[in-house]
């Protein structure tokens, strides 16, 4: 399996509800786990003993693809101006409590710490997520219904 294959797999997983996938091809097994405890990791290891198996292209070095931001506390954006509100769990992101209801917040909304700004569903548990910073929503970074990872940025907030 080559690097481009792994990239393809990663692309395939983006925006889905799949949190873990294991693929075996040409004697090489790849396991991708979108996690919470650590950044998304890709483990590549040769399957049991095929002498002619191609060398693993990547060793067991974690590739921190989408989840470098795996901290729960609000973080400053590169510009040091905006605060990112990140997801505390793996699940599906919803902007409103029911499909018909208006979104909890929109671009331009003023939010206060403790205000519910979205719902993330996992195992049919609807988790209200509170803002952990005061400010104005500058950007909603995730589509309604999209899968999110632990630590994935959800909103950009211009802090007060």
């Amino acid at each position: 399996m080559e690097n481009k294959d792994i990239k393809e797999l990663l692309k395939l997983l983006q925006g889905t509800d799949v949190s873990e996938i294991e693929v075996e091809r040409d004697g090489t097994k790849v396991r991708i786990k979108r996690g919470f405890a650590q950044p998304a990791e890709i483990m590549v290891a040769a399957a049991a003993q095929p002498a002619f198996a191609p060398q693993p292209v990547a060793t067991a070095q974690p590739v921190t693809a989408a989840a470098q931001a795996a901290e729960v506390a609000p973080m400053l954006d590169e510009s040091a101006r905006y605060v990112k509100i990140t997801s505390p769990i793996v699940g599906s992101f919803y902007r409103s409590p029911t499909p018909e209801a208006p979104p909890f917040v929109d671009v331009g909304s003023e939010v206060r710490k403790g205000q519910v700004i979205c719902i993330i569903e996992a195992m049919k548990l609807m988790n209200e997520i509170e803002a952990d910073a005061d400010g104005r929503i500058v950007k909603v970074l995730v589509q309604n219904g999209q899968s999110v990872e632990y630590g994935q940025p959800l909103f950009l907030v211009d802090p007060r």
Binding site: P88, I89, N127
Partner: peptide, 8 residues
């Protein structure tokens, strides 16, 4: 099930 989560 419904929950309310603030940070960690």
């Amino acid at each position: 099930l419904e929950s309310n989560i603030a940070g960690a």
